[in-house]
């Protein structure tokens, strides 16, 4: 393995352990890894925005390939208008001139609202309503093709009944008593099942992140240390966590000792 790859993968494994050390307690190693990630992300984003956004989509139209600000002889000279609107945004940093930034913000919000409202109405309301009504129950395929078939009639019936019951729960113009209360309670049960499904997926997502880091460290032990046995990862992880936490506790101990000495 090339030395460069070895060093990068080793750094990756070390930073992984630094991040996981937060589960024990907040500590300087975690903070170091966190700040490193934020700093690298911000730096990467700025350069990416420049080279993939501003240069090809603005400056190249104004420059004709010669000089960025020689826009007067550029064929697409009207690109100067969005450029000026962009510059106007920066006036927010001055109390005196901040009002100028309202113009580009107003244009941006106006265009955004105009585009968004009809499309969101169609996507999230009209088509959803249409689907709930049109696909109410497919009696011809009631039992579906097998285990928890979402296209089966019984699934659609459950969805239909669930939607109505959940709407009952959010209807506050009538007191929740009697049959109305029963339907509303069924509705909240349906909502809880929905939240439970989200929670289950969330747990799976969080475990997935941890599993991927285990796999990454496992690959690191295999490629960097030529580990033939996957059991080695257990020892590497245990020793790694122990080393990270020992360093942290040592730093804490030195800080406490320093504070005690300065106090006395």
């Amino acid at each position: 393995m090339p030395m460069g790859t070895f060093l990068w993968t080793t750094l990756g494994a070390f930073l992984t352990l630094c991040i996981f050390s937060f589960l024990y307690r907040d500590n300087p190693l975690y903070k170091f890894a966190e700040h490193l990630m934020v700093g690298v992300s911000a730096g990467y984003f700025v350069i990416l925005l420049w080279h993939n956004g501003l240069v090809p989509n603005l400056f190249s139209f104004l420059s004709d390939g010669h000089f960025y600000f020689l826009w007067l002889d550029a064929k697409s000279w009207w690109y100067i208008f969005p450029a000026v609107l962009g510059v106007m945004m920066w006036t927010r940093f001055s109390r005196k001139w901040a009002w100028i930034s309202r113009w580009p913000i107003a244009i941006y919000i106006g265009i955004g609202t105009g585009i968004t409202i009809p499309l969101v109405m169609r996507t999230s309301i009209n088509l959803q309503l249409y689907a709930s009504i049109r696909k109410a129950i497919d009696w011809g395929n009631f039992f579906g093709s097998g285990y928890l078939d979402s296209t089966a009639g019984y699934s659609q019936a459950l969805i239909f009944v669930g939607v109505i019951a959940a709407l009952f729960y959010f209807f506050f113009s009538k007191e929740h008593t009697g049959l109305f209360n029963g339907v509303a309670k069924f509705g909240i049960g349906i909502l809880m099942i929905g939240f439970g499904a989200s929670f289950g997926y969330t747990v799976m997502g969080r475990i997935s992140l941890f599993v991927q880091r285990i796999q990454a460290i496992g690959n690191w032990t295999a490629t960097s240390w030529h580990a033939t046995s996957s059991y080695l990862i257990i020892w590497i992880l245990i020793i790694g966590i122990f080393v990270v936490l020992s360093i942290y506790e040592f730093i804490q101990y030195m800080n406490r000792r320093g504070a005690a000495q300065s106090g006395s």
Binding site: T123, L127, A131, S150, Q156, G194, S198, Y201, M204
Partner: peptide
């Protein structure tokens, strides 16, 4: 989708979007 998001997008599957 990531696991956290998945459950929220099933209505779009049912509607054919």
């Amino acid at each position: 989708l990531t696991g956290v998001m998945s459950a929220d997008y099933y209505p779009y599957l049912n509607s054919g979007q």
